[in-house]
């Protein structure tokens, strides 16, 4: 279940901060007060960024998982060239800071390749590129954690390389990488805030826009923090539910090849 206890623990220091430790600062909560016409309007404006934040994160993580999976298979392939390509891909993309990638894709692609992606497309591409290097490493670790006996059993039965991965190795590896994969998704939701610099109207961008008209940065940013907090808590909860459902569906038990005597003969 959703851990209300933990969210409380997170909210407590925040509310303390907001409740006047600032000394001389006079809070102007009217700016987002639901009791005022203008406040309601501002609130709606801030929340209107939610769609882009979620959409960009979902698109980016989907793309990144697909690319990361392919790259991890290349890294683990018996083919020397594929392996070299995979390693280079991971090394290069892992060393580019996300923000730099965002700027480069958005401002660079139009000049270098004569493409002019929208802020949304460029954002998805940049986030996915950076993240795919990490996804590749996650998949590689998951695949390598599968017992050697599983490979040997599949080989001995005569399964070819593709079938072995498709039916034996990947179904087990995916179950193991679900938790880190969920983490990456949550991380992606947060990183999407970088896209505010290229003008994608997501949560952070909306906050910045409101600040330029209302001159109330502290109130707006505080609300922004709460928005992300609620979003991330919800996402984490969904990810955990998904994990549990998938393990249940696969009849998952402690995965050990030598789970001797797990049940006595009936």
């Amino acid at each position: 279940m959703f851990s209300w206890f933990r969210s409380l623990a997170l909210l407590l220091p925040l509310s303390l901060l907001l409740s006047g430790c600032g000394g001389t600062y006079t809070w102007g909560w009217y700016v987002i007060s639901p009791n005022l016409e203008k406040g309601r309007e501002n609130l709606l404006f801030l929340v209107s960024g939610l769609g882009h934040t979620v959409a960009v994160a979902l698109c980016a993580i989907t793309l990144s998982v697909v690319v990361g999976l392919l790259v991890s298979l290349a890294v683990l392939s018996p083919n020397r060239f594929l392996r070299g390509f995979g390693r280079a891909y991971v090394e290069v993309l892992r060393s580019v800071p996300m923000l730099v990638m965002v700027l480069w894709v958005y401002y660079g692609l139009p000049i270098v390749f004569n493409l002019s992606p929208s802020a949304f497309t460029a954002g998805v591409l940049a986030l996915a590129l950076c993240d795919s290097a990490f996804q590749a490493e996650i998949f590689r670790a998951g695949i390598q954690s599968i017992d050697r006996g599983q490979h040997e059993a599949a080989d001995a039965l005569g399964l070819n390389y593709l079938d072995k991965f498709r039916y034996i190795i990947m179904p087990q590896a995916i179950l193991r990488v679900l938790p880190p994969l969920g983490n990456q998704f949550v991380y992606m939701l947060k990183t999407s805030s970088l896209l505010s610099v290229i003008g994608l109207t997501e949560l952070t961008r909306r906050a910045n826009e409101l600040i330029t008209t209302e001159y109330r940065p502290l109130e707006v940013y505080s609300f922004l923090v709460l928005e992300y907090l609620a979003l991330i808590l919800l996402a984490s909860w969904l990810v955990r539910r998904l994990e549990r459902r998938m393990s249940a569906r696969d009849g998952a038990r402690p995965y050990s090849a030598d789970a001797v005597g797990a049940a006595k003969p009936a």
Partner: peptide
Amino acid sequence: QEVGMVFQQFNLFPHMTVLENLMLAPMRV
């Protein structure tokens, strides 16, 4: 295809039922 093997550690596929363990290779190979 002509040589079967039985391992010390069994090496059954843990994500498949007993029946699926047995049916996979005949169907795929």
